[in-house]
Amino acid sequence: MNARTHDLRRSQPQLPPRQPVVRLKDFVRRFGDTTVISGLDLEIEPGEFVALLGRSGSGKTTLLRTLAGLDPAPGQDVVVPDSRAVVFQDARLLPWKKVWRNVALGLRQGDVRRRAEDALREVGLGHRLEAWPLTLSGGEAQRVALARALVREPSLLLLDEPFAALDALTRLRMHELVLSLWTRHRPAVMMVTHDVDEAIALADRIVLLDQGRIVTKERIEAPRGERGHVARGLRDRLLRALGGQLSDGPSPAEVIALHAGGLA
C-alpha cells in the first residue's frame, strides 16, 4: 500500500468541512397515481459511505436511479455531482466488448487502454483484459463492473445491490475489495442493499427506507472490524424497523469477524 492509503480504522477521515456531494430536499417521486418517494431529505458528505436499506418496493431503487441521473427529476431540489458511476446487481457488461473495452467505455481522455488496465489490475483482473464478458464468473464480472465505475474517479459511487447475486464467500471478498477501493479513492458511496449485516459491516451511516420515507438513521462510529459489540443491538433495531424481516446472509458475528482480520 502506498502513502495515499488512509488508515481504515479511522472511520471518518479528517477533512475540512465541505459541501455535501448529494443533497435531496423534500424529494417526491410519483409514477402515475403511485407515490414511490415522498418528502425525502438526504445529504451525503464527500467520502462518506452510506448504506440504504429497505424492503422490495420501499423506493430504494427509485432513489438510486434518481441519484444516477437515469430518472430525471425536473423541478425538484436535487444536487448530485456530475462525476458519478453505478455498479448494478447484474454487472451489465456489454458482451460484445472485451473486458478492458468495457472498462474503457465512454472514456475520452488520455491513454484509455492504460487507464482501463490499471483499474482492472486494481480489482485483481489484470490477467483477464482480453476476455469476453460471458466467460467471466459472477464475481469476476462484478469486479469488472467495479473497475469500470472506479476508472472514472467518480465523486459519487452508487452500488445497487451489487453483491446480492454472489455466493457468501465471494460476497465477503467483494466487501473487502470495495472497502479497500473506497479507502484508496474516497468517493462518496451510496450502497443499496437489503442485507442488514452487509450494511453494518461496510457503512458509516445506515438509512432505512420504508414506503418512500426515511424511517431510521443510524450512524456507526465504531471502526470497521471492531463493530462486534454494536452489531447485535443495531441489527435488532434495523430488523425491527424493517418489520422483522430476517436476513439470509451470514450472521453478523461471522461477517464482522472476517472483516476484523482483513485489509492488512
Binding site: 444516477a68 441521473g69 437515469l70 458511476a85 453505478v86 448494478f88 447484474d90 451489465r92 456489454l94 466488448k97 467505455l105 465512454g106 469500470r148 472514472r152
Partner: peptide, 19 residues
Amino acid sequence: RLLEGARSFGLSRAELVFH
C-alpha cells in the same frame, strides 16, 4: 438494462447507438 448501464456512464445518443 445494458442500454441503461451504458447511459449511466454518460454516453451520448450516438455513442449508445454505436457501442
